[in-house]
Nucleic acid binder design. Structure first.
Lengths: 342, 342
DNA sequence: GTGAAAGCGCTAACAC
DNA sequence: GTGTTAGCGCTTTCAC
């Protein structure tokens, strides 16, 4: 409990408290010599500005809040999502002397909106980062906006108004397709996801763009439907492997379906990746637990959250492009260069 | 940004700000009528005390910090641990008007201690909750104690000095053993974990106590060594199933070994749980992902963290017993009543 | 029971 | 360049 105040520093450096304040806040209009004297006094005394006093005087909280869907904690998958966002946002905050408030909101709870409003009214964060899928929910968005707090939404999907940060699913799918093509594959299949998922359409068009960019023709027989489940991946693979000219690579619109493809391949005695390359999307934890470990697309969650933090704290808007963070391709064991024909 | 201050409320209720302060803080010496008038004014105006002003005046921060080992975020297992602790602590904090500060510390980083000290000096939390395994590290503990902040350690293991909250591994192992006995099993084997792990000894003695409590004799042939790995679980199971009188239930000192036992059983054509019941310890995410899903012991992380929060905020010590939270037995598919002999 | 006044540690506005 | 003086919104004496 350092009881050292700005007055102590001022006395020791033989200046007024205002000058100390200037030095602490890096304001101009301080002679170099004075500045150094003050800095020395700060070091000597191990002075730390009192954040409450500062907040009170500036009418600012130096706080950012992260609101996310309350992960029903014993389920692992969503935990990774949350923890990554926390870390990314935390680095942005700490680098700027801000603190982070976390607020898990259970949207199935009727009091969720009330709790959010209460938290904002109580802690008065300078901005709120709203994670998906909450970022898609109009009432949640409205609640935060009504509070007058700055709001950055993460991957808001279709209704992308206001400020947001996201990854471009189409671009990522294109990159993965191009990656598969770069391995020499010419017959690259695509397994679509559930039609309702808005990202699905983007991933499909990214696949098409990837083919085009790689100078490959689109063969409609190589595009099959799935519904995001493992089972549908199994079915899709069975269908594809039964083709007269089966694909040498399959890109599934999510990891679960890719896992299903792996299963079918194993059942058909098709070796992955030697005879068939398989790629997924999302990088769920399953992706590295199955064998062969799945090559997939990963959202750069930390970078996304970091960017959101910057936007709030540095009060920047950024061009649309600044706020679309490219996804990463994670190459694991399920993809390999096309085997040469004999 | 509610700009309503205590003065506004005082004016509307025709009292002095001190009286409003009394009402807000539930202090005595306010006539009932006055109190009601003030409360009505607070509601009418939607008044929220300014936390910074309060902190400044009271010299308190109304903050609790949670320090945990920085989960290398893309690995799921540790995420669940962290998120559960956060949630438990958060509920304790929110219920008391406190906020939670999270501080992931990477102990492999040479600046970790410095960062912890910096966080404490900057934010001045009223207490720190230190999660395992950091709670075992003398330098981390010393850094926090030097700051003068109140410290509660979680599962500190051997060196349990000062205040801490933990689960009793021995008691939990005893409960699981008794549970297996209650299913009718008389030959219950135990697979020990890595000798270096301090909890291992406790789990073994809990097993022994469980047998005793259930009126079963200890058969040394039913206690085999493992090293906490899946492979060692496979070996142990092979050894146990080869016995003249094999066990009808196996309790492994951790989930990984239990998973290994499941594998061997499948290889031997032994059906789990019909012919063999298998139980683990820890409830790692793998436990519910494998088939059959594993019956296991789970640390009540939320309850532990909640208790730690209480200790800090309510400034209670609690008896040793209050601070030992019993683990939960999670019954899934890998255990069943002993099949009757024909 | 209630209120007036002082002060928590800082920044902002304005002198000098 | 530097210092003086008021607050920021609350709690805390201590008087009434």
């Amino acid at each position: 409990m350092s009881k050292i105040t700005i007055t102590d520093v001022a006395r020791r450096a033989n200046v007024s408290i205002k000058t100390v304040s200037r030095v602490v806040n890096g304001e101009p209009n301080v002679r170099d010599g004075t500045r150094e004297r003050v800095q020395q006094a700060i070091l000597d005394l191990d002075y730390r500005p009192n954040p409450s006093a500062r907040s009170l005087a500036t009418q600012r909280s130096y706080l950012v809040a992260l609101i996310y869907d309350d992960p029903d904690a014993y389920e692992a998958p969503s935990c990774g999502y949350v923890v990554n966002l926390q870390q990314g946002l935390l680095s942005a905050c700490n680098a700027r002397g801000f603190d982070l408030l976390i607020h898990p909101a259970n949207y199935r709870d009727s009091k969720a909106l009330e709790n959010i409003a209460k938290m904002i009214a109580h802690a008065r964060p300078e901005g709120v980062v709203l994670a998906a899928p909450l970022s898609n929910m109009p009432d949640v968005v409205a609640t935060i906006e009504d509070s007058g707090t700055r709001l950055i939404r993460l991957s808001p999907g279709a209704c992308a108004t206001g400020q947001f940060v996201e990854t471009d699913d189409a671009e990522a799918a294109q990159a993965m397709t191009s990656y598969l093509a770069s391995l020499g594959h010419r017959r690259i299949a695509f397994v679509r996801g559930h039609a309702k998922h808005s990202a699905v359409q983007l991933r499909l068009s990214g696949y098409k763009a990837g083919l085009r960019a790689s100078g490959l023709n689109l063969d409609p027989a190589l595009i099959v439907d799935g519904d995001n489940s493992i089972a549908s991946g199994e079915d899709a693979a069975a269908q594809l492997l039964a083709l007269e000219q089966p694909p040498t690579a399959v890109f599934a619109a999510n990891d679960d379906m890719a896992a299903g493809i792996l299963r079918t391949a194993s059942r058909f005695g098709v070796n992955v990746p030697d005879q068939l390359s398989v790629a997924g999307f999302d990088d769920i934890s399953l992706a590295q637990q199955i064998y062969p470990a799945l090559t997939t697309v990963r959202q750069p969650l930390r970078a996304i959250a970091y960017r959101a933090g910057e936007m709030i704290i540095d009060d920047v808007q950024g061009t649309h492009e600044d706020n679309v963070i490219p996804a990463e391709i994670v190459v694991r064991e399920s993809t390999a260069p096309l085997a040469r024909k004999h």
